[in-house]
Design a protein around this nucleic acid. Sequence first.
DNA 1: ACTATACATATCTATATAGGAATATGTCAA
DNA 2: TTGACATATTCCTATATAGATATGTATAGT
Lengths: 118, 118
Amino acid sequence: MARAATTTDAFNAVAEPRRRQILDVLTDGERPVNDLVKALGLAQPQVSKHLRVLREVGLVEVREDGRRRLYRLNGHPLKDIHDWLKGYERSWEERFEALEDVLEDLKGKEQGDEFDDE
Amino acid sequence: MARAATTTDAFNAVAEPRRRQILDVLTDGERPVNDLVKALGLAQPQVSKHLRVLREVGLVEVREDGRRRLYRLNGHPLKDIHDWLKGYERSWEERFEALEDVLEDLKGKEQGDEFDDE
DNA sequence: ACTATACATATCTATATAGGAATATGTCAA
DNA sequence: TTGACATATTCCTATATAGATATGTATAGT
């Protein structure tokens, strides 16, 4: 199998830095493609393609305005990532590692047989 | 160019669901590879490869214990993702879209010329 | 010395990129 | 209607997967 498609979910979509940049710009509000092209310093077709990916995972929405298309942010899909990270917030906070070490000692050296029921 | 390597950063590493699963299991503490294999229901070589990716981005650390290798979580690299998401938390909260619509109206219909200085 | 166990690595294959370049589509303006 | 402008799509290519399979390496037990 190959890697999951970038359009699979928000996780895959925002793994690409350019796409995060696009979302960052859209934080300030609706923008036409041309603004994004200028902001990213990338060629227009590439920006359009990134926008397609973002659209497919629902991270942006489009609105037509004459010959321009105004893109706007929709953060909802990002909630999945945020929710997943919830369980890890402790793991990068100060003193977490020290705490872990203490727990480790208390627990009594070794383990790792919790799944041996097969 | 191709897609960025999975080992580029935490964003790319955790885009793969299996790797998130591995981290989830490690939340409960250090585990030997075999436990992860059983927990994921995946073949051992695949698990080892996922662990390699996680090791390369610093999301896990290893400790030798006889013929086993005990893997433990290191959440630090996840902070980058969390930090990036900080700027978006408002965007998925209740009533955000309604708020946006109001702001849009107040602002006066169209815009999109903030980058025309070229 | 054997053999089983635990884990890593190498090899193969199909697939989906990201960017570049060219082109298509649609809209506005004179 | 002709042309400039805004955006999307198509085609091309190099590359890195994820899983499957086979094999390598080290440690433990007898």
